[in-house]
Design a protein around this nucleic acid. Structure first.
Lengths: 138, 138
DNA sequence: CTATATCCTATAGTTTTTATAGGATTTATG
DNA sequence: CATAAATCCTATAAAAACTATAGGATATAG
């Protein structure tokens, strides 16, 4: 399961995308709209900002905004940033690989093979689907 | 990621399947062979037994054994039993569904739609691939 | 100068995961 | 029947991860 952090991030990004025409959006606005603890959300948005996904402006009239168009933000990017690996096992993770401690030879491990397929099927969706794909269609 | 519990369960099941001809297998044998804490493994095997996947025999000459052929044990069964939901979000889980607290209408939620597809792609593999598919091929 | 809003880091609280402990129960065998 | 072997069962401890909160620092608009 995705953590609350990642779930909140998705909902916040959706709100930012759907209100991109209104200039910087307040953390407090998103928090209220999406029922998220304001302080928790603050940390999440900061992380998204430090990763270059969001921009921000301080002071009056400030807030957060997207640094790229929704189409340029793959869902996998957000998940990896906030939750870490997408794969079900460390030994099949592309970005967070760790050697299997039980297997003598991963190349002939049937579990490794199946989980690699699961990873590929998942990534095919999560790397191609973007923020744009999860917006409410008007 | 799958928990250690589930990972250990897979490795234990593989060992049991590959030694099915030798009668009941000792917990201690599996623990040693797969580098798993014996007491932790004990709890896992017990859970698999209570779920009807394994059988056991007490006393001398006892141990654990598969109750079904490897082909009859889908990987999804093990994961759900020990780890819970396979889906990435509660609102798209088939077996552990929970209503989304943020969405007003899940039916038109784009995130719900994409995550449903991820779930389907994952389940297509994990429900059709069985213990037999992860055994070392001889 | 002041109010506003993000920035930053630390920490507290809670839950989940991982692991261990130890006695109870069952069974094979001499 | 006594004994040793093995699982059964439940509780609990230890560690890690997740969720949330706190509070001052910094930047900016007006």
């Amino acid at each position: 399961m995705l953590s609350k952090k990642t779930q909140y991030a998705f909902h916040a990004l959706i709100h930012l995308a759907e209100n991109a025409d209104k200039g910087p959006i307040l953390i407090s606005e998103i928090a209220q709209e999406k029922n998220i603890s304001i302080k928790f959300l603050e940390n999440i948005l900061l992380e998204l900002k430090n990763a270059g996904i969001l921009g921000s402006k301080k002071g009056k009239g400030g807030g957060y905004y997207l640094m790229r168009t929704p189409k340029e933000i793959p869902l996998a990017r957000i998940i990896r940033l906030l939750d870490g690996p997408i794969a079900l096992l460390p030994c099949v993770s592309l970005n967070y690989y760790e050697r299997c401690e039980t297997c003598k030879n991963e190349a002939v491990c049937g579990l490794n093979e199946v989980m690699s397929k699961v990873r590929d099927a998942t990534l095919k969706l999560l790397e191609n689907k973007t923020l744009k794909d999860i917006l409410t269609r008007n």
